[in-house]
Simulated scan of single mutants.
Amino acid sequence: MEPTTHDEKAGHIGLRDRLEATFWERHANPWSAGTRILVYPVLMYAIYTRNRRLIAATVAFMAVNPVLFPRPERTDNYLSRIVLAEREWLDDGNETMGLDYPNVLNTLNVPVTVYAFAAAIRRKPVGTVLGTLGVMVLKLWWTDAIVKETSVTGRAPGENSVSAE
């Protein structure tokens, strides 16, 4: 990627930029992306069963997940590409919510998430499962759409950078 800020062009990358780069590089590990997708059903189960320890552990895991795993050797796999596409999407100045496609998917996800949480709190099993599935489908649909929009392909071992065709 080309340097985008004045500091980067001048060869001076600030602490914030380095931390952000580290965040995205480590989050591009397929274990990070994959477990982050799977953590939502665990959270809904924890809320449904009123398991406070599991809720706390799940929230803690969600907080550290993006930096928990090492920078991957390769990012030419689908799970890495969804993270790289999200980074590129945001770096290009795009929003994540709105009425335009694909952001409408995240906008629709707000009431579905509220529904899922309400169903779990009220211990409605069908609503909890359907709401959880709805959240996951909408989120994966959005990430798939931005992978296609950005054309991020990732990098195999020996390649220096992420390529966007």
Rank of each mutant, 00 (worst) to 15 (best):
T4N: 05
T4L: 12
T4G: 08
E8C: 07
E8G: 08
K9Q: 12
G11I: 04
I13C: 01
R18F: 02
R18Q: 15
L19H: 03
L19A: 15
F23N: 02
A33C: 03
G34F: 12
G34K: 09
T35D: 15
P41F: 09
V42M: 13
M44E: 08
Y45D: 01
T49H: 09
T49L: 06
N51E: 09
L54G: 04
F61M: 03
V64I: 15
V64W: 10
R71A: 14
Y78A: 11
I82E: 03
L84C: 08
A85C: 03
E86I: 02
W89N: 06
G93Y: 09
G93N: 03
N94K: 07
G98Y: 04
G98R: 05
Y101N: 13
V104A: 14
N106M: 11
N106V: 07
T107M: 13
N109E: 07
N109W: 01
P111W: 04
V112G: 00
Y115Q: 02
A116P: 04
A118M: 12
A118Y: 07
A119H: 00
A120G: 04
I121T: 00
R122C: 01
K124N: 14
K124A: 08
P125D: 13
G127W: 08
T128G: 06
V129F: 12
L133W: 10
G134L: 12
V135I: 13
M136C: 12
V137I: 15
L138W: 10
K139T: 10
T143C: 00
A145P: 10
A145M: 05
V147F: 01
K148V: 09
G154I: 11
R155D: 05
G158N: 03
E159S: 08
S161H: 14
V162F: 09
A164W: 09
E165Q: 01
